[in-house]
Simulated assay, not measured.
Amino acid sequence: MKVGLYFGTFNPMHIGHLIIANHIAEYSSLDQVWLVVTPHNPLKKKSTLLDDYHRLQMVFLATEDYPKLKPSDIEFKLPQPNYTVHTLAHLQEKYPSHEFSLIMGEDNLNSLHKWKNYEVILQNHDIYVYPRLNTETINPEIAANARIHRVDAPVIELSSTFIRESIKAGKNVMPMLPHKVGEYLEHNLFYKK
């Protein structure tokens, strides 16, 4: 089985995440897309994150009607801070018959050379790259790698930060969220203060 791994804090999960994950699941050679909820990105302040299990629940609620999309808590069980190369090794060991690829935006591809053991990732895993607005030119050496696949996905410029700030300001963000995620946030009063 070919599985694409879409990593994120999903703080909160929004329709942009869902559109990209579903587009890649439907219009690539991947069989499934796993949305991997990251417990703590070393580049983000942990204080801004909702509890890991609330974020996992939002991904579950958003994807339960999409059979090719699966929430994953695989990184919850790994030592923190974790690196993608370690997650990939762990998954390959746990699911030896699966072929794992990464899914990332062009902005992340630009910083791939800063990732721990990025050469190992590129040697062993395909990377599906979706477009972003206003990205710098991609490093030509990385862009030319045969494992990099540009995906003609819709450009979604919607950020979880914008949604959190809008909720705090009392704005109606429901159109930006999968319906069940919006209900979950409302019920729990998340991001209100």
Rank of each mutant, 00 (worst) to 15 (best):
S72H: 13
F162N: 13
E99D: 15
Y184Q: 06
H125E: 02
N110V: 03
H23A: 03
Y27E: 14
V129P: 08
S160N: 01
T161S: 14
A143M: 04
K168V: 02
P154K: 10
L177M: 12
E183K: 14
S166Y: 10
H54W: 08
A153T: 09
G16V: 13
G182L: 07
E186N: 12
G8F: 10
K94P: 01
K116V: 08
A143C: 02
K192Q: 14
L5D: 07
Q123C: 00
Y27T: 14
T135G: 01
G8I: 10
R164L: 05
L133S: 15
P96F: 10
L185I: 15
I148T: 05
L158T: 10
E75Y: 11
P81Y: 07
V151H: 04
H90Y: 15
N134L: 07
I121L: 02
T38E: 13
R147V: 08
L177F: 12
R150M: 15
D126H: 12
H179N: 09
N82A: 03
H86L: 09
I19G: 02
S160P: 07
H17K: 07
I142K: 03
P67N: 03
K44V: 02
V129T: 12
E136P: 07
I167A: 08
S47M: 05
Y184C: 01
V36H: 07
L177E: 14
P71D: 09
V36R: 07
V181C: 03
T84E: 04
T135Q: 10
V85F: 15
K192N: 12
L102T: 09
T84W: 05
E119P: 04
P140V: 06
P178L: 05
S111N: 08
W115T: 11
Y128N: 05
S159E: 02
N41L: 07
L69W: 13
K70I: 15
P79L: 08
R150H: 12
K168G: 00
I163T: 07
L50G: 00
Q80Y: 09
L102M: 06
G8T: 03
K193V: 08
R55I: 02
I142F: 07
P178M: 01
E186V: 13
I127N: 00
I24K: 09
E75P: 13
Q92S: 12
Y83R: 09
K45N: 14
K2E: 14
P81K: 03
L78K: 12
L18G: 01
N108D: 09
N41A: 02
K116G: 00
K68P: 05
T137F: 12
G8D: 12
E186Q: 15
Y95L: 12
I138W: 07
P131W: 07
K171W: 06
H187P: 00
H179P: 10
S72D: 14
K77D: 12
N139M: 01
N110Y: 08
S28V: 09
F162D: 14
N117L: 09
P71T: 01
H54E: 13
N82L: 04
P175G: 02
P96A: 02
K44Y: 11
Q32H: 15
N134C: 08
Y66G: 00
F162I: 06
S72M: 11
G4V: 01
E183T: 06
N124T: 08
P154N: 04
I24E: 09
G182D: 03
A89Q: 12
K192L: 07
